[in-house]
Simulated assay, not measured.
Amino acid sequence: MSQPDIIKDIRRTTPDLVAQAAKYQPAIFSDINGRRGALHGRIQALRPRMKLAGPAFTVEVRPGDNLMIHAAMALAKPGDVLVIDGKGDQTSALMGTIMMTACRQLGLAGVV
Rank of each mutant, 00 (worst) to 15 (best):
residue 85 D to Y: 01
residue 8 K to N: 11
residue 33 N to H: 04
residue 12 R to L: 04
residue 53 A to M: 09
residue 88 G to L: 07
residue 25 Q to I: 02
residue 106 L to E: 10
residue 66 N to C: 13
residue 15 P to G: 00
residue 27 A to C: 07
residue 100 M to V: 15
residue 6 I to C: 01
residue 9 D to N: 12
residue 100 M to P: 06
residue 44 Q to H: 01
residue 92 S to V: 15
residue 102 A to C: 13
residue 106 L to D: 10
residue 60 E to T: 15
residue 17 L to W: 07
residue 84 I to T: 10
residue 81 V to E: 01
residue 8 K to P: 09
residue 74 A to H: 08
residue 37 G to V: 05
residue 69 I to E: 08
residue 54 G to T: 07
residue 50 M to L: 12
residue 47 R to V: 15
residue 58 T to P: 10
residue 57 F to W: 08
residue 26 P to M: 01
residue 8 K to H: 12
residue 45 A to P: 12
residue 101 T to V: 06
residue 36 R to G: 14
residue 81 V to G: 03
residue 96 G to L: 08
residue 68 M to Q: 15
residue 29 F to C: 14
residue 89 D to L: 04
residue 16 D to R: 13
residue 66 N to M: 12
residue 26 P to R: 05
residue 106 L to F: 14
residue 65 D to P: 05
residue 96 G to C: 09
residue 19 A to V: 05
residue 97 T to E: 09
residue 83 V to N: 03
residue 44 Q to N: 04
residue 81 V to L: 06
residue 97 T to H: 07
residue 94 L to G: 13
residue 38 A to R: 06
residue 63 P to V: 14
residue 66 N to R: 14
residue 46 L to S: 15
residue 54 G to F: 04
residue 70 H to G: 11
residue 60 E to F: 15
residue 24 Y to G: 05
residue 7 I to K: 13
residue 61 V to E: 04
residue 44 Q to M: 05
residue 91 T to K: 13
residue 50 M to A: 14
residue 97 T to W: 05
residue 75 L to P: 02
residue 25 Q to R: 07
residue 44 Q to E: 03
residue 15 P to Q: 00
residue 102 A to V: 14
residue 29 F to G: 15
residue 53 A to D: 02
residue 20 Q to I: 12
residue 40 H to G: 11
residue 38 A to W: 02
residue 25 Q to S: 05
residue 33 N to C: 11
residue 55 P to A: 15
residue 28 I to M: 06
residue 83 V to P: 01
residue 73 M to N: 09
residue 79 G to Q: 01
residue 41 G to Q: 02
residue 11 R to P: 01
residue 13 T to M: 03
residue 26 P to D: 00
residue 32 I to K: 00
residue 51 K to A: 09
residue 57 F to C: 08
residue 100 M to E: 13
residue 75 L to A: 03
residue 74 A to I: 09
residue 20 Q to R: 12
residue 70 H to F: 08
residue 17 L to V: 12
residue 79 G to F: 00
residue 95 M to D: 03
residue 90 Q to D: 14
residue 8 K to I: 15
residue 7 I to C: 11
residue 38 A to E: 01
residue 69 I to R: 10
residue 79 G to Y: 00
residue 87 K to T: 01
residue 23 K to C: 02
residue 38 A to H: 03
residue 61 V to K: 08
residue 5 D to C: 10
residue 98 I to Q: 12
residue 41 G to R: 02
residue 39 L to N: 03
residue 43 I to G: 12
residue 50 M to H: 12
residue 16 D to W: 08
residue 75 L to F: 02
residue 79 G to D: 00
residue 49 R to I: 11
residue 13 T to D: 01
residue 68 M to F: 15
residue 10 I to H: 03
residue 44 Q to D: 02
residue 33 N to Q: 06
residue 97 T to M: 07
residue 63 P to S: 15
residue 105 Q to S: 10
residue 34 G to L: 01
residue 80 D to K: 08
residue 57 F to N: 08
residue 90 Q to F: 13
residue 63 P to M: 14
residue 68 M to G: 13
residue 57 F to L: 13
residue 65 D to V: 14
residue 93 A to F: 03
residue 103 C to M: 14
residue 74 A to N: 08
residue 89 D to Q: 05
residue 19 A to S: 06
residue 99 M to T: 11
residue 33 N to W: 01
residue 104 R to V: 13
residue 65 D to E: 11
